[in-house]
C-alpha cells in the first residue's frame, strides 16, 4: 500500500526466519561436519568413504530398490490417472480420497501393519494356507522393502500424474484421433509428452524418499538389508560419527540435486513450449 516492498518484507520475515533456522543452518552444519574430521580439519575422507565396498553396496542396493519401486509406482499410477481423468467428476473425488485416506494414518504404523501381514504365520499366509495355496515368504527380503516403498509412496505418484493428465485439453486428443492416430499412438505421441511435467515430479516424489528411507528397510527388512539410509542413520545413532554420517548425506544430496535439475529443466522447457 504505502510501501509494498517493505510490507512484503515484513510479511515474509516469519518464513525467512523459519527457513534460516531450520533449513539453511542445519544444511550448513551438514556441509561443515561432512567436510571436516573429528579434530575440525578440512577433509574429503568422509565423502570419499562412499567408495568403500560396504557403503557402495548399500548405495547401489538403495538405488536399485528405489528405481524398481518408482517404475512399479508409475506403472500402477499412470493408467489410474488416465481412468480418473476420464471418469465423472463426482467419482474422481471419491477415488482420490480412497488413495489419500491411508495417509491420514501415521506412516510407521502403516508399515508395521505390513510386518504383521507378511510374517510367516501372518494374516496373508493364514488365509493362503486356509485356501490350500502355497504360502509366501517375502518378509525380511528386498521384495518386502519394495512392497513397502510402493505402498507408502504411491499417492505421491498418483496426484501429480492425475493433475497433469486432467489438464490435457480433450480437443487435442480428439484431433489426434481425427487425424488418424491409433489409441496407442495417441498415448505415446500426445498424452505421454503432454504429461511429462507430472511424470517428472511424480518420479522425484517417489524416488527421493525411497532412496533415503531407513524406516521401511528396518521394519520390513529385519535389519538384514542395509540401504544407504540405514548406514547414515547408524553413523548418527550408533557410532556417533556425525562427520562420516554427514559426508555420506552429502553424497545422497548429489542425487537429489540431479533430480531437481532435471525437473527444473523440464519445467523451463514446458514454459517455453
Amino acid at each position: 500500500m504505502f510501501n509494498s516492498r517493505k510490507a512484503s518484507a515484513g510479511l515474509s520475515s516469519p518464513y525467512v526466519a523459519w527457513m534460516t533456522i531450520f533449513i539453511i543452518v542445519p544444511l550448513l552444519m551438514v556441509f561443515y561436519f561432512g567436510l571436516t574430521d573429528a579434530g575440525g580439519a578440512f577433509t574429503f575422507a568422509n565423502v570419499a568413504s562412499i567408495a568403500s565396498p560396504e557403503h557402495l553396496k548399500s548405495l547401489l542396493l538403495a538405488l536399485e530398490l528405489s528405481f524398481i519401486s518408482t517404475v512399479i509406482c508409475f506403472l500402477i499410477a499412470y493408467p489410474l490417472a488416465l481412468i480418473l481423468a476420464h471418469s465423472r467428476i463426482s467419482s474422481q473425488g471419491l477415488i482420490i480420497t480412497i488413495f489419500i485416506l491411508p495417509m491420514w494414518m501415521n506412516f510407521l504404523l502403516r508399515t508395521m501393519a505390513w510386518m504383521t501381514l507378511l510374517e510367516g504365520t501372518g494374516v496373508i499366509n493364514t488365509i493362503l494356507s486356509f485356501l490350500h495355496l502355497p504360502t509366501q515368504h517375502i518378509i525380511n527380503t528386498p521384495a518386502a522393502i519394495v512392497l513397502g516403498m510402493v505402498y507408502n509412496f504411491l499417492p505421491f505418484m498418483i496426484l501429480p500424474l492425475y493433475n497433469a493428465v486432467s489438464r490435457i485439453d480433450p480437443a487435442v486428443i480428439e484431433a489426434a484421433r481425427d487425424l488418424g492416430a491409433g489409441r496407442f499412438q495417441t498415448l505415446w505421441k500426445i498424452t505421454l509428452p503432454l504429461s511429462a511435467g507430472g511424470i517428472i515430479s511424480g518420479v522425484t516424489m517417489v524416488f527421493i524418499p525411497a532412496l533415503t528411507t531407513f524406516a521401511i528397510s528396518t521394519l520390513l527388512g529385519g535389519s538384514k538389508v542395509l540401504l544407504i539410509g540405514n548406514v547414515i542413520e547408524s553413523y548418527f545413532m550408533l557410532s556417533y560419527d556425525v562427520h562420516l554420517g554427514s559426508g555420506l548425506s552429502l553424497v545422497l544430496m548429489v542425487f537429489i540435486i540431479i533430480n531437481m535439475v532435471v525437473s527444473a529443466v523440464s519445467d523451463a522447457k514446458e514454459q517455453t513450449d
Binding site: 517493505k6 510490507a7 515484513g10 520475515s13
Partner: peptide
C-alpha cells in the same frame, strides 16, 4: 504497518 513490522523483526532477532 510500521509497528507490526518492528514486532516481527524483534521476534526474528
Amino acid at each position: 504497518m510500521k509497528g507490526y513490522q518492528r514486532v516481527l523483526s524483534t521476534l526474528v532477532l
